[in-house]
């Protein structure tokens, strides 16, 4: 049973570092709101963790979308909903 970890703050000590301590292989990560600033400096994630970023929050901040071949998957709000449904549960870190 895998978990979707949602990060909405840019400060890695708010959320991401705590999240990494409990993240398991096969979990998912989603960066939204100010959390998208972490897209450029994402640390190594456990095995088989898929990382996603909310496209409209990236664009609102003038950050370029991840290019082809990036490990980061871009999602829109429909994709956000699909992720929440695909993982067994979600945790919103702050």
């Amino acid at each position: 049973m895998s978990t979707l970890h949602i990060i909405n703050k840019a400060n890695a000590s708010q959320g991401l570092s705590s999240c990494l301590r409990v993240m398991l292989p096969g979990d998912g990560l989603l960066l939204i709101e100010d959390g998208v600033y972490l897209a450029a400096q994402l640390p190594a994630l456990p095995e088989a963790v898929r990382a996603h970023v909310l496209q409209e929050d990236l664009q609102a901040r003038g950050i370029a979308l991840p290019g082809e071949g990036s490990a980061l998957f871009t999602v829109d709000y429909a994709g956000f909903v699909a992720l929440v449904c695909a993982y067994a549960r979600s945790v919103s870190w702050s």
Partner: peptide
């Protein structure tokens, strides 16, 4: 790159 949608 678009994320995969859940099946069904």
């Amino acid at each position: 790159m678009q994320a995969n949608q859940p099946p069904g």
